[in-house]
Computed example of a mutant assay.
Amino acid sequence: KYGKKSRYNFRKPYNFILDCSFHIRKKLRKSNSPNLLSDEERRRIEKDTRTKSETKLKKREEKLQKALYYVQEIEPRYASKFIDRYFKTHDLHERLEIIRELSKYKSENIIEFFYKVNACTRNFSLKEESMKYIQSIGLPFVLRRKKQGKKNYIDNEQVKNMSSPEILMKRLYVDDLEKIKKFDVFVSHNSQDEDKIVKFYKKLNKEGYVAYIDWVNDKFDLKRQWCNASTAQVIKQRIKQSKVFVIFLSKSTLNSQWCPWELGYADALGKKICVYKYDDNGEMIPQFYEGYPQIYIDDKLWVDDDEKMEFKEWVNSDKGKQDRKSSNKFTEH
């Protein structure tokens, strides 16, 4: 807090207003004929200023909510290892992948990491990535200027990484960072339920669980227009990396080809599986969905697995584990 440069010491609103009004107040003191406002005129100006300010604040809040729409406001367990690797590696492309991964989450440690990237990193394109993240979540940021004098070629190199399901699949088998990723809940769903899914995984985040959703966690590589055989291999690996498998059952899910396939693969692995019925209006639901525990949401998350219990208790209990023998039969079939 002491002796650091101005990019760390952001002014308080009170001091900011005093600094901005200093010259105006100084001018008024020296003026022989100060412009004194009537009470009515003062109230009118105050009202107009307040109205304009509230309009600006509302727009800023809407922009912030839009930026945080896809961000999981929780810190994954592997975040500290990613941060340590960033400051140990000299590979700029690996550093960009770490920045991309951590930009999908929000926590105090991750925010502090992005401030450190701006302070310590010489490459300007990586500093701009940290700026985009910090500004998108509505926090103050002062971009560190480019180095003066003689520059290294690394300083001005534009770091860009290629993205595709094939590239991600290769990283899954080669990259140590991809191997240490762990998720609490894999959410199987239909992408047509985007708004419903966002609300659902935000609820999981509040309960302390990191969710995996392909178009959120692998948004740079698993785009819908790129869907192919490599996408299926990536999904398999993400199911393996997840502790619990939850299928978000809605009208759209019943028309999906991917959801039953993902459910069958998770069952074959012996994963803990539960079903969240979003549209439970008496429509015909395939019987194989009825054989799994159901999840309910009110103030907390509940699971009905012969008995009603909190989701966190169910996750840590032996209930819900699939029979390995039946899984093997399913695989052979």
Rank of each mutant, 00 (worst) to 15 (best):
K4I: 15
Y8G: 11
I24Q: 15
S33H: 15
N35M: 14
D48T: 11
K56N: 02
E61I: 15
L68H: 00
Y70P: 01
E73G: 03
E73T: 11
E75F: 11
A79M: 05
K81I: 05
F82S: 13
R85C: 05
T89G: 00
D91R: 08
E97A: 15
E97Q: 15
I98G: 04
I99M: 04
Y105D: 08
S107N: 03
C120A: 13
I134Y: 06
Q135S: 08
L139W: 08
L143N: 10
R145A: 15
R145F: 07
K147Y: 09
K151F: 02
Y153E: 04
I154K: 06
D155A: 09
N156T: 07
N156G: 14
K160P: 00
P165C: 05
I167C: 06
L168P: 00
L168F: 01
M169T: 07
M169G: 08
V174H: 00
E178W: 13
F186C: 07
V187C: 04
S188F: 00
K199Q: 15
Y201D: 04
V210N: 11
Y212E: 09
W215V: 11
K219D: 10
L222V: 11
R224Y: 07
W226Q: 04
C227E: 04
T231Y: 06
A232T: 13
V234L: 01
K240L: 13
F245R: 03
V246K: 02
L249T: 06
K251V: 11
S252P: 01
Q257H: 13
W261G: 03
E262C: 11
Y265D: 00
G270H: 03
G270I: 11
K272C: 11
C274Y: 00
Y276C: 13
D279C: 07
D279A: 06
D280C: 14
D280V: 10
N281I: 05
I295V: 10
Y296V: 06
D298M: 03
K300T: 15
V303Q: 02
D304Y: 10
D306E: 03
E307L: 07
M309S: 12
F311P: 01
K312W: 13
W314M: 04
W314R: 06
N316P: 01
N316F: 08
S317F: 09
D318E: 13
R324F: 10
S327H: 10
T331F: 14
H333G: 02
